[in-house]
Every structure is written in structure tokens, then in C-alpha cells.
């Protein structure tokens, strides 16, 4: 009788332990999702600002067509990107395009003095800062979650219930990646 009770007790303890690990993983995965949605809000905000910016610049620097088109193309590509890794690449390309747009704007004093342009520039700068700051929180969450999915014993539970490791969010800016290349 005691043997059965003891056995049942051990089984119950084991089940509770597994439940605990499972719930822990779910909590971490949700934290990752939540952190990503924070970034997503900012990315969307960024994409929404760009058409306005392009319109404003057009009014002063219409013949900078190439630069403007590059920004629009990069923006449209970024809107369709899904998942942190893909978004990171697309946003990097967009940042590169925006950089050249603001470089072009330097040559137009009237544009630079335009209130609307200044306001958009401030909003974009702030959005970039927010993305950068929320990226820290996101990558922290991913790190915690991924560590749990890889470490014993949670990795067993993770494997059983299909908890896949999450992607980190890194923004790669194309131009700057190319600079260190040296050829002989």
C-alpha cells in the first residue's frame, strides 16, 4: 500500500516538475514574443514615416530621383520582411538608403530649414533610437529563452514540445559591412 502511494507520489512530483519546466519555457517564449512586438511597433512607425519624408523631399529636390526611389524600394522590401533575421537585413538596407537621402538633403538649405522635414527627421531619429534600445531587451529575452532550450534538462522538454530557438535581431547596414574588405 505504502509502496503504491510512494510510487504515485513520485509520479505526481515528476509530472509537476515537468509542468514547471514546460511553463517556464512558455513564459520565456512569450517574453520573446512580447519583446519582438515592441520592436515591431517601432518598425511599423518607421515604415509609416518614410512616405511622408519622401513627399517632403520631393518638393525641394525632385531630381534626386534615384535616391528617393532607392528609399521607397528599401521601405517596401522592409514592410514585407517577416521574422527578426529577415527584418534585420531589410532594416539595415533601409537605414543605408535613408543615410544617403539625408546626405543628399545637406545640399538643399531650403529643405533643411523646412519645419515638416525637421519634424520627420526628429521622428525618424527617435524611432531608430527606440529600435536600438528595444533591441537590447529583445536580444536579452532571446538569450534567456535559447539558453533554456539548449540546457539540460529543459532541452528534453523543449525537444518534446517543439520549442525552437528564436532568432536574434541584428541590423546590418550594407555599406559599412563592405568597407573592411581588402584585396591583393
Amino acid at each position: 500500500m505504502t509502496g503504491i502511494l510512494l510510487f504515485l507520489g513520485i509520479i505526481a512530483g515528476l509530472v509537476i516538475w515537468v509542468f514547471g519546466m514546460y511553463n517556464g519555457l512558455v513564459r520565456l517564449r512569450n517574453a520573446v514574443k512580447n519583446a519582438w512586438s515592441q520592436i515591431d511597433v517601432q518598425l511599423k512607425r518607421r515604415h509609416d514615416l518614410i512616405p511622408n519624408l519622401v513627399e517632403t523631399v520631393k518638393g525641394y529636390a525632385a531630381h534626386e530621383k534615384d535616391t528617393l526611389e532607392r528609399v521607397i524600394a528599401a521601405r517596401n522590401f522592409a514592410v514585407t520582411a517577416s521574422g527578426p533575421a529577415e527584418a534585420g537585413k531589410a532594416e539595415g538596407a533601409l537605414t543605408g538608403a535613408l543615410k544617403s537621402l539625408f546626405a543628399v538633403a545637406e545640399a538643399y538649405p531650403d529643405l533643411k530649414a523646412n519645419q515638416n522635414f525637421l519634424a520627420l527627421q526628429e521622428e525618424l531619429t527617435s524611432t531608430e533610437n527606440r529600435i536600438a534600445f528595444s533591441r537590447q531587451a529583445y536580444n536579452d529575452a532571446v538569450m534567456q529563452y535559447n539558453n533554456k532550450t539548449e540546457m539540460v534538462p529543459t532541452n528534453i522538454i523543449a525537444g518534446m514540445f517543439n520549442f525552437k530557438p528564436s532568432e536574434f535581431f541584428e541590423i546590418e547596414i550594407p555599406e559599412e559591412r563592405q568597407t573592411p574588405k581588402v584585396s591583393f
Partner: peptide, 15 residues
């Protein structure tokens, strides 16, 4: 060292 640096993505600061 879990926290990454916040890279400055854009040079332009509007003020």
C-alpha cells in the same frame, strides 16, 4: 554579457 550595444543607426539628429 547578454546586453548588446545600441548602435547608432543614423547620423542625422534633427534639432
Amino acid at each position: 554579457g547578454a546586453v548588446l550595444t545600441a548602435a547608432v543607426l543614423m547620423d542625422a539628429a534633427a534639432e
